[in-house]
Design a protein around this nucleic acid. Structure first.
Lengths: 189, 189
DNA sequence: GTCTATACGGTGATAGAC
DNA sequence: GTCTATCACCGTATAGAC
């Protein structure tokens, strides 16, 4: 019936993992939402739930970096690109009451110490995200060293801001981040 | 035998929750580590695991804010206090390979959308932490409005930095945060 | 490639003895 | 206040029919 069962599982699982965390969602729940049975699942993911998670992380990573690259190519400077990106995240959060990208922190918190494989995928995803910042910052004229440090700061602040949005159930933290983050970049510019 | 069984449970549970996340630890595991049985546990926490978590969060919050207040009273400015605080966190992380405070993000990620009660305790804890920053920033001469925004930024950046430390298994992210965060505060000072 | 049926361990939680 | 025994349920995972 369905052309791409595996794709459906990944899509539904990614959505549920974001909403209810990885450990908070069971395979049965995912399969019920997909209208599929265990047999179908273990055919596509013989190594089970963790294999599914890692696959989800890879596709998330690809989506995020593609989105970011598109935004960053449309703007002159790093500051402008980040402001534009954050506006998009904030709008999406206010619309869906859920942040659907740019963050792997929940997975790291849950699985970072339990699964080395999962931690490495997350580390790699963050490196990709910071890579985009670094390239743009260097184009802005920052030294490679400074660009690296700033990229890390930007990544940390945005991730922290997202987490505070989830904690307070408002978009205010990300709005403040969007307002003050440019100061960090401009001060050394 | 033990003078304070409830305190022991809280202590051991807090430690395990930090190491393996809330959903990743079962009650049985906590009780084995305590050398106790279900009966003892449900005597002290009749409402079960979530009640235990909330109790742990309260004591964590108290410890963190007490530690922070002690550090902040020893230093003249916000920048100095934060630098001192981060040095402590970094040293502790390099010693124990685990961050044992200043962060509720893993709990928020896991339980924020599943339990409103837990989310509210975390929100309150973050408000307490930011309150300490705000008081010091105002003593530095910042306006109330500016102090609030800066406190949020500081909180977000440090939480994000901690999360990146866990992801990369190094203390580098927090070191960079410690180095660059003062720029954010000084630029408007 | 998808189904049904099942195995088996672990979960949170309860009841009742001491 | 702590124990043992037991509960029903859900977790992941497997086997075999179609």
């Amino acid at each position: 019936m369905n052309v791409d069962t595996k794709g459906l599982i990944i899509q539904v699982a990614t959505d549920l993992f974001r909403k209810k965390s990885y450990l908070g969602v069971g395979i049965s729940e995912i399969l019920t939402a997909c209208n599929l049975s265990k047999g179908a699942f273990y055919h596509h993911f013989p190594k089970g739930k963790e294999e599914l998670l890692i696959t989800c992380l890879y596709t998330m990573n690809e989506t995020i970096t593609n989105d970011m690259k598109a935004i960053f190519s449309r703007h002159e400077t790093t500051v402008e690109a980040i402001e534009s990106m954050l506006i998009e995240v904030i709008n999406q959060y206010e619309r869906d009451e859920m942040i659907i990208g740019y963050t792997f922190s929940s997975i790291v918190s849950e699985m970072g110490s339990l699964s080395e494989a999962v931690r490495e995928v997350c580390e790699n995803s963050y490196a990709n995200i910071e890579g985009i910042y670094i390239a743009k910052l260097q184009a802005d004229g920052f030294s490679k060293q400074m660009a690296k440090e700033l990229a890390l700061m930007i990544n940390a602040t945005i991730e922290g801001g997202i987490m505070l949005c989830l904690t307070t159930k408002t978009s205010k933290p990300l709005k403040t981040v969007s307002k003050l983050l440019p100061n960090l970049i401009k001060v050394v510019e």
